[in-house]
């Protein structure tokens, strides 16, 4: 496992480094030399990691993800949340995340979850919107209600 992971890691860094060096070609003067050197260096280091693993890598078991379903669930929820923040509004999507993610991970005490979600969203609202007056994505729900009413 560890050996294959390191070879793969080395290859990725080689790719990134080579791509960076290639792109830096077109940059003018000293502004281009530096990133090109860095790109080449990164590619060399990547090949060193891959090469070392090829030569002496032991087949030690190293788990990349401990609980893949849980990790993917959380990462996917985060992705969906980020995608929804702008169109849906910040507080609506946050509240949804507070309810859905624990449920997706197997949390079944609904009342507990709703209370925590409400309290937490309220605290965030008070701190960011009231106290600090930070502009956050506007609530679509709220503007729908106000035009409807």
């Amino acid at each position: 496992m560890e050996r294959r992971q390191d070879i793969f890691l080395g290859l990725i860094f080689m790719g990134v480094g080579a791509a960076a060096a290639w792109m830096a070609r077109s940059y003018s003067g000293e502004g281009g030399t530096y990133p090109m050197v860095l790109g080449i260096l990164l590619a060399l280091l990547g090949s060193a990691v891959a090469g070392k693993a090829l030569r002496s890598g032991a087949y030690v078991d190293r788990q990349l993800i401990e609980a893949p379903t849980k990790m993917v669930t959380a990462a996917a929820a985060c992705t969906v949340y980020i995608a929804l923040v702008a169109p849906l509004g910040f507080y609506t999507s946050s509240f949804l995340l507070m309810l859905m993610l624990p449920a997706a991970l197997g949390f079944r005490q609904w009342l507990y979850a709703v209370i925590v979600a409400l309290v937490f969203t309220l605290v965030v609202f008070l701190v960011f919107s009231v106290l600090l007056e930070k502009p956050l994505p506007r609530e679509t729900l709220l503007s729908l209600l106000s035009t409807g009413g």
Binding site: V130, E133, S146
Partner: peptide
């Protein structure tokens, strides 16, 4: 802090009322 909190709170209240006053009627960014 209290003052900013108060201003914020009043704007929130003002926001929820669909009043059609003249410009500006909501916060400016």
């Amino acid at each position: 802090k209290m003052k900013t909190a108060f201003v914020g709170l009043t704007t929130v209240i003002a926001l929820s009322l669909p009043a059609q006053a003249e410009y500006p009627e909501r916060p400016i960014e």
